[in-house]
Design a protein around this nucleic acid. Structure first.
Lengths: 242, 242
DNA sequence: TCAAAGCAAGCGTGATCACAAATCAAATCA
DNA sequence: TGATTTGATTTGTGATCACGCTTGCTTTGA
């Protein structure tokens, strides 16, 4: 019986190769649409069609319609009575509603994380802060996409430490819902002049490293409130004009 | 121009007829699976197949697969790496996780509702309490399904008053996730002898009627903690035996 | 000239088929 | 006898087609 030898050979092969994964087309479509939504590539109130997306993503309609259905159930998209689907429009009530929910849930997640993060994990998110500064130093403005991605990684790296398999998907859903709104605010930001966003993130990391759950929660709420407050003002002024 | 006459005739017709609705097969399948999940008709860890459900619901596979996909994204079902889908199993961590999330979010919802409910709405949920007592008086035990339905109506009637279009879908998702777990506990309840559940609901209504948000939150948390705590003890004792 | 009817293109929905992966059972070999 | 392999059945996934609804434009009639 050369069972052991075969086993060893397989292990050698396994060490060289990297798993190819079994992602379905539907999963890729779903991920791509999520990315687009969080990244603000779609405008609020924009209507999406199955065939149009299928053409753009170079697949058939089948994976797209299932991905759209999933995004509708998590309120990232909206099903109109006409049976067409669109990106939810921005309203003042919705902005306040989203901010309240995010403060509540992400606040709880970071408070939990503050009591559970080990030094290794804290060092990891602290390192992201440095990477951030480098990027900012190099190209004074621009590259909003890269900054947004980094911001997302920063937040979820922390949230993952809260140890809740229930809260994290909810937070993802909230980011999905607020993505299109936030992006509108961010773009307006970069026109209106930069604000020191790094300051908030430093406060968060500082609170985490001394395991101060309450301070972490407050710093986080201040961080996520910023774009919402900006968007709120912008919306109110435009509605006055109209 | 007999426009006014035509208009009047149309109104008369509309008064007689009731809208026929435009629910798709997929929607019906989704609702039915939701009902089954919250009602605990499926056991934890039970595997569901598309064709099996399609046969049981007397449709084709298409509406079922889309409904399953939607339920998977809201974590009401679980996609295994084998690509089969099952009802999520019960674990101690999951129970604590769900209870924490529900206390947080439903607690916030009821606190908001406490400040916003008008006398009309309060009277409505108070009336449900009476209906409850009647049912309980008639058939001493039994009819758990009816009681569960009433309980669900009671809670969501309150939550709807919180005025948040973001929180309510999240609460629905949480009920969906905890449905199978809760049902296991409820059935064990009715064996172990009834507890006075009406007491908690009276406390909730009392707090709401004097607009005491904090008391309402505490009464609610006590109410939803009960089956979770019971289930928790049951799980711990069985794991000791095994 | 303008509103209403009619028509055509586009869309979502559901059914069916083809294919590949997984599962289970019988058959095979050591 | 017990582990392995082989083959048949079942399952999920994706593509395609047919049907009915919606929408926008043209045409018709007053």
């Amino acid at each position: 019986m050369q069972k052991a030898a075969i086993e060893k050979n397989n292990e050698m092969i396994a060490a060289q190769l990297t798993p190819v994964g079994r992602e379905t087309v539907q999963d890729r479509v779903y991920s791509e649409l999520r990315r687009a939504l969080i990244g603000g590539l779609f405008e609020p109130s924009q209507v999406l069609t199955i065939r149009g997306l299928a053409d753009a993503l170079v697949t058939s309609t089948m994976p797209v319609r299932e991905a759209l259905g999933r995004l509708i159930t998590e309120k990232a998209l909206e099903a109109l009575p006409n049976r067409s689907v669109r990106v939810p429009p921005i309203t003042l009530e919705r902005i306040d509603d989203l901010l309240r929910a995010r403060s509540l849930i992400e606040g709880e997640a970071i408070a939990l994380a503050a009591t559970r993060m080990n030094p290794r994990q804290i060092a990891s998110v602290e390192a992201m802060l440095g990477e951030w500064d480098e990027m900012r130093a190099l190209k004074h403005k621009k590259d909003i996409d890269r900054e947004a991605t980094l911001n997302q990684s920063f937040h979820f790296e922390i949230y993952r430490c809260c140890g809740s398999a229930v809260l994290i998907p909810m937070i993802e859903s909230l980011w999905l819902q607020s993505g299109p709104c936030i992006r509108v605010a961010i773009y307006a930001f970069s026109d209106a002049g930069e604000v020191d966003t790094a300051h908030y993130h430093r406060s968060i990391v500082a609170a985490l490293s001394r395991q101060d759950a309450q301070a972490a929660r407050e710093a986080l709420v201040a961080d996520i409130s910023r774009p919402f407050a900006f968007l709120r003002d912008k919306l109110q002024s435009t509605s006055k004009e109209g």
